Amino acid sequence: MKTILYVTDFYYEAKGRKYYEEDLFITSHLKEHFNILIGHPHQVLNYLDMADMLVFRNTGSVIGYQEYFNRFVTIAKEKNILTFNSFDGKADIKGKQYLLDLMDLDYPVIPTIDTLEDLNKLGDPSTFVLKLKNGADSIGMEFLTMEEVQKIDVKGRLIQPYLDFEYEVSFYYLNNSFQYALYAPNKDKRWDLIAYEATKDDLVFAEKFVHWNEMERGIVRIDACRLKNNSLLLVEVEDLNPFLSLDALSEPKRNTFLENFITVLKKL
């Protein structure tokens, strides 16, 4: 039986999400097929040689230990450690610069700038959203008026218009294969998720970003917002450690995902 080093932080606190419950649930199923070692992301370098593969899951934002995380990724690649996710994505794992890049490539993303000189690209919203370029879990997010935005130091931050969207929806992919979708009917409660039946057009939208990201293996969550004209715009591509919201799935769908996840890990 192969051994997995399952990296998580049971004590990480995130609004509306209980990371530890999801990881306890997943590992309770993985243990039937693998030997499971559980490690903390701040100590993972001490245990890289103890397992056949490493599964990097609900560790929360790496902003608090970015230098250590970067060293871990470098060493894992140097030692040819088999990791899941594979740390070769181009999106959130590298920060939020990709939103600017995708906008320049005319992908359907929320308009995003990082300099006040480009404010005209955002139209004339009453409110702006500021995000850290290396942020996650809404860390450092602010909502400002035009007058307030024009007085700030933008360095290290992104500016987006605050959009009056209908709802947010997330599409979950395992090794580039669509698994399920969830959405938040109440846009003020981002993590009150329920099942969503993705349409063909929805998946065409989501897979543009899955294919662009070119990640070799892992779980990717494509977050989008539905505008009042029914179009979708990208919010983010979470390609490091996306929370899966498995508790929002029906039991059959949850079991199907777990079976697919186990199958993928066994094939590695």
Rank of each mutant, 00 (worst) to 15 (best):
Y172P: 03
Y98K: 08
V220P: 00
Y183G: 08
E13Y: 11
V129G: 04
I4W: 00
D52K: 06
R226Y: 09
M1P: 05
V220Y: 00
E147K: 15
I75P: 02
S86E: 04
S61W: 03
K266H: 12
L246K: 07
L45Y: 07
G140H: 04
Y20H: 15
L132Q: 11
L227R: 05
Q179T: 10
E147I: 08
T115H: 13
F72G: 00
K189M: 12
I194E: 15
G140A: 04
H33D: 06
K266Q: 15
W191E: 09
W212D: 03
T74S: 15
L99N: 03
K79W: 00
D52A: 10
L249S: 04
G123M: 05
T256F: 10
G135M: 02
L193M: 12
L174D: 01
D247T: 11
E168A: 07
N70R: 14
R71A: 13
L233E: 11
D88I: 05
I26S: 01
F205A: 01
L54G: 01
C225H: 06
E197H: 12
T83N: 04
E197V: 08
E13V: 14
L144F: 10
F10I: 08
E259A: 14
F165R: 03
A224W: 02
L246Y: 07
G60D: 02
F171Q: 01
W212K: 02
S177K: 13
I194M: 13
N186V: 06
F205G: 01
D164P: 04
W212P: 00
L227M: 14
D247R: 12
L99A: 02
Y180K: 03
T3W: 05
R17Y: 12
E236W: 00
L122V: 08
Y6W: 03
T74V: 07
E78Q: 14
T59P: 01
Q43I: 07
T83Q: 02
A91Y: 00
K79F: 03
K131C: 04
G89Q: 01
G218K: 00
I139L: 14
D192Q: 14
K151S: 13
K121D: 12
L193I: 08
G39C: 12
V73H: 02
D118M: 07
N230Y: 10
M50Q: 15
P161W: 07
N255W: 06
M215Y: 05
G123I: 08
E67C: 06
R221P: 02
Y6T: 01
F243R: 02
G218W: 00
D124W: 05
F171A: 01
N70W: 06
N80A: 12
P252Q: 09
E216F: 06
E168L: 06
W191T: 14
H29C: 11
L203Q: 06
F34T: 02
L30E: 02
L193W: 03
F84Q: 00
T127E: 12
F84Y: 15
L227D: 03
L54A: 10
D9H: 04
E259Y: 09
V73P: 03
V235F: 05
E168W: 00
A195I: 13
F25T: 02
N175V: 05
T199C: 10
I139Y: 13
E166N: 11
I36Y: 00
E78A: 12
A14Y: 09
L182R: 03
T199L: 08
V44C: 08
I36C: 02
V220G: 01
I38H: 05
